[in-house]
C-alpha cells in the first residue's frame, strides 16, 4: 500500500465509512499532504463506497480542500475588504518577493504555496494571513518578512 492509501484507510477507520465522514477524511488528508490527490480521492471513494466523481465534486466545493499539489506551508492572505484597505497588497508583494513566486504558485522546493482567501475573521487586525491553520494578524512588511524567514528556516 502506498502512503496515501494507508493514510486514507487510517482516516476511514477513525471517522467511519458513512457519507458524513467524507469531510473529516478529506480534511485529514489535507492535514497530512496539503492537497487531495487523484489517488487519495479514488481511495476515499473506495473506502466510502461512493463514486470518485462525488468525492471530486465535494472537494472542489471547498476552497481549503485543494485538489492541486501544494507546498508544505500554504499561505493564504485575506483579500477581503478591511484587509484590502489596510495593505494586503503590500503584504502579498512582500511574500512574492521573499519566495520568488507569484500569487497562486508554489516554490520549486515545494515548501510554500501563496494564495489569497476571503475574510479570516480578524478584520480588526488586518491584514492577516493563515499559514496552514495558524493565523498571523496585524501584518506589515516587516512582520511578514520575519514570519516567512522563520518558516524558511524550518
Amino acid at each position: 500500500m502506498t502512503e496515501t492509501k494507508e493514510l486514507v484507510k487510517k482516516l476511514a477507520d477513525k471517522y467511519g465509512r458513512a457519507r458524513e465522514s467524507l469531510m473529516p477524511i478529506l480534511q485529514g488528508v489535507i492535514e497530512e499532504e496539503r492537497f487531495v490527490s487523484s489517488e487519495a480521492m479514488t481511495e476515499i471513494a473506495r473506502e466510502l463506497d461512493i463514486a470518485s466523481a462525488e468525492v471530486y465534486g465535494t472537494a472542489t466545493f471547498y476552497s481549503f480542500l485543494d485538489t492541486q499539489p501544494r507546498g508544505k506551508y500554504v499561505i493564504r492572505v485575506c483579500k477581503t475588504i478591511t484587509c484590502d484597505m489596510h495593505g494586503k497588497k503590500k503584504v502579498i508583494e512582500k511574500i512574492e518577493d521573499l519566495l520568488k513566486i507569484k500569487l497562486g504558485e508554489t516554490t520549486q522546493d515545494k515548501k510554500f504555496t501563496l494564495l489569497t482567501t476571503n475574510c479570516l475573521g480578524w478584520c480588526h487586525q488586518g491584514p492577516v494571513m493563515l499559514i496552514n491553520s495558524t493565523p498571523y494578524p496585524s501584518l506589515d512588511e516587516n512582520k511578514v518578512t520575519e514570519i516567512i524567514m522563520d518558516y524558511m528556516s524550518k
Binding site: 457519507r19 458524513e20 469531510m23 473529516p24 466545493f61 476552497s63 481549503f64 480542500l65 482567501t117
Partner: peptide, 25 residues
C-alpha cells in the same frame, strides 16, 4: 465539532447541514 473547509455559504443553515452530511454546501 465538525469543521468547515473554506466556504462562506456553509454558514447558511441548510448548506451547513449538507456540509455536515458530507456533501457540497
Amino acid at each position: 465539532i465538525r469543521m468547515g473547509s473554506g466556504a462562506y455559504i456553509c454558514g447558511e443553515e441548510s448548506a451547513l447541514f449538507e456540509s455536515i452530511e458530507g456533501k457540497r454546501g
